[in-house]
């Protein structure tokens, strides 16, 4: 088992239901989960806590998801945190853009519990 600090997933999502879903699934898989609703909360968690992975909804209100991704990847200290983006939009162009900006995985909603856990496990495997 990893140390508690090495399995923290920050879930950034403005839909409360989806947040609950992702959080519960990952908890059941053994991850420690943090929930953020907007960019302010996101960066506060990252500054205050050791975050090992970010699960980011790109379609936050006002397109804040994209801004969060850009800021994360531009900041030297945060750039190393892997980011899995999820979105309800299935445009190929968006997928390419997100990967180019530094996302490690692009997931399209609706997500099954299995898709989510496998994607997270690929990036942040648990022993």
């Amino acid at each position: 088992m990893k140390k508690p600090d090495d399995n923290t997933v920050l879930i950034v999502e403005d839909e409360a239901d989806i947040r609950t879903f992702a959080c519960r699934v990952l908890q059941l898989e053994g991850y420690r989960c943090l929930e953020a609703e907007n960019s302010e909360e996101t960066f506060r968690f990252i500054r205050e806590t050791k975050v090992n992975l970010v699960l980011l909804d790109l379609k936050l209100a006002e397109n804040n998801g994209w801004l969060i991704l850009a800021r994360l990847k531009k900041n030297k200290e945060m750039a190393s945190i892997p980011v899995i983006v999820s979105t309800a939009s299935s445009g190929e162009q968006q997928r390419v853009s997100a990967l180019e900006m530094g996302a490690v995985e692009y997931l399209v909603k609706p997500l099954s519990a299995n898709t989510l856990k496998e994607a997270v496990a690929r990036i942040l495997p648990l022993k």
Partner: peptide
């Protein structure tokens, strides 16, 4: 259409997510 698709996917995401969770982790 893209917007509608997104709007449809959002509740679907909830349905799909929770349904699969119930299936996969029923015991726990």
């Amino acid at each position: 259409l893209a917007n509608i698709s997104h709007e449809l996917r959002t509740p679907l995401a909830g349905i799909k997510g929770f349904a699969t969770m119930l299936l996969d982790y029923e015991d726990r």
